[in-house]
Amino acid sequence: MKAEEVADFRAFVESRWSGLVRTAYLLTGDHGIAEDVAQSALTKTYVNWRRVQRADNPDAYVRRVLVTTNTDRFRKIRVAEQLSADPPQSIGEDPYSRIDQQHMLRDALADLPARQRAVVVLRYWDDLPETEVARILGCALGTVKSQAAKGLAKLREHPGLTGARLRAEEYADDRA
């Protein structure tokens, strides 16, 4: 690869690293694994960088590789992983309710099946249109719509989010 292409790839990575890690974290539920998945996706992207650069949407290409890399880790490693609402390395109570709500949302996302989680994260966190999500996941538009509806319904019924919604409403009443 030419020095100019390497510089272009480096700039691409620097501008998108944090967003890719955030997306990977929402898919995996673990910061360390999220960084590993993002790094693996970018390694695969680097190998095909000339083709990626010529693509209409390099970001979509990398997101697709990110989702596929996350899915592949379950195929290669047959160790059962269980995401938990109470991770063993708890750092204690955080006094800020917004951070607590973010944790509850991540826990609720972790409870969703992988396909629903991927659709919800790409559609509502990354704010991608349904057609783009369908293209990234390699599925039909109807599948994206149904998985999004099912995922959102589960999130609405999740006990942690129901409580967070009630606390937010109580807080809003206190401020009025």
Score class of each variant (00 low, 15 high):
Y171I: 10
V6R: 14
E14G: 05
Q39E: 11
A24L: 14
A168W: 00
A38E: 14
G19K: 12
A24I: 10
L155Y: 04
R64I: 02
E170M: 09
P58A: 10
E169M: 13
R51N: 05
E81I: 09
P95H: 12
V6W: 12
A148E: 14
A140V: 01
A168K: 00
R175N: 10
V37C: 01
F9A: 14
R16K: 13
A168D: 04
A172F: 03
K2R: 08
D56N: 06
A41L: 12
D100C: 10
Y124Q: 05
S146W: 09
G138C: 01
F9M: 15
D72Y: 11
D127T: 09
D94M: 10
A38V: 02
R73Y: 05
L42F: 14
R115N: 03
A41K: 06
N48D: 12
H158E: 05
E130M: 13
E4N: 01
Q89G: 07
A11S: 11
L122R: 00
A60H: 08
Y25W: 10
I33C: 03
A118V: 00
K44F: 13
L105H: 04
R106A: 08
D30V: 04
L122N: 06
T43A: 13
G32D: 12
F74R: 03
K44S: 09
S84C: 07
W17P: 01
S84R: 14
A38I: 11
D86L: 06
D8R: 13
E130L: 08
V62R: 06
V62A: 07
D8M: 15
V62E: 00
A3S: 15
T162R: 12
R156I: 15
D173I: 12
A60F: 04
T43N: 07
V6G: 05
A164Q: 13
E5M: 02
R63C: 03
A3Y: 03
R156V: 13
A164L: 11
Q89W: 13
L141G: 09
Q89H: 14
A7N: 03
G142I: 01
S15Y: 03
D111M: 05
S15I: 06
G92D: 03
D107H: 13
A55E: 15
R51H: 09
R16L: 07
R117G: 00
I77T: 05
P159Q: 05
D174W: 12
A118Y: 07
R50M: 02
V133R: 02
P87C: 00
R135T: 04
T28K: 07
S40V: 01
V47I: 15
A164S: 13
D107V: 06
T143Y: 10
E35K: 14
R165C: 11
A55R: 15
A7V: 11
V21S: 06
K76C: 08
R75I: 00
V37M: 03
K150Y: 12
Y96W: 13
E14L: 15
F9C: 08
V47Q: 06
Q53V: 11
V67G: 00
Y124M: 01
R123T: 09
V120Q: 00
L141N: 08
N70F: 15
Q82F: 09
P87F: 00
S40E: 07
S40F: 01
P113I: 09
L27M: 11
L112V: 09
E157F: 02
D126P: 10
G142M: 04
S84M: 08
V119F: 08
